[in-house]
Amino acid sequence: MGLLNALAEWNNQRYEKRLAQMEEKGLCPDCHGHGYHMFASEYFYMSSHQECPGCDGSGAFDDWNNLRNK
């Protein structure tokens, strides 16, 4: 159990560090500030995109944080 707890703690610290970096830059942590997610297909060259549900497509950390805390 000690190893699993150590891995979980390390993963949590990594996530918190990433959130702090994105907050400092003012970017949405889900889409890295792009406002959308790209989906690549291995069968077709074309790729489609979808608005980021975390920030509603704005790419801003404040919008992501407001939607997360609703």
Rank of each mutant, 00 (worst) to 15 (best):
G2I: 06
D56N: 12
Y15Q: 10
K25H: 05
Y43I: 04
A60P: 02
D62S: 14
L67Y: 10
L27K: 07
Y15W: 10
F39Q: 08
A60D: 11
Q50K: 09
M46E: 15
A6P: 00
M46C: 12
G33L: 05
N11H: 03
N5M: 05
E42W: 11
A60V: 03
N69I: 00
H37Q: 14
D56L: 08
N11P: 00
S41T: 07
R68N: 07
Q50G: 02
G59D: 10
M1C: 06
Y45A: 12
N69R: 07
N12I: 00
C31T: 10
R68Y: 10
S47R: 13
N69M: 06
R18Q: 12
P29H: 11
F61T: 02
H34I: 12
C55G: 02
A60S: 13
P29C: 09
E42V: 05
L19M: 13
W10S: 09
H34Y: 15
H34P: 13
F39W: 11
F39D: 03
G2K: 14
Y36F: 15
G35Y: 05
M46T: 14
G2N: 14
Y45K: 15
Q13E: 07
D63M: 12
H37A: 08
D63F: 02
F44C: 05
Y36A: 12
K17R: 13
A6L: 12
H49T: 14
L19P: 04
R14T: 11
E16F: 01
M46W: 10
S41I: 05
H32K: 14
Y45E: 15
C55D: 00
E16W: 00
N12A: 02
E23F: 04
G59I: 03
M22S: 06
R68P: 01
C55L: 02
Y43K: 12
P53N: 04
N69T: 03
D56R: 07
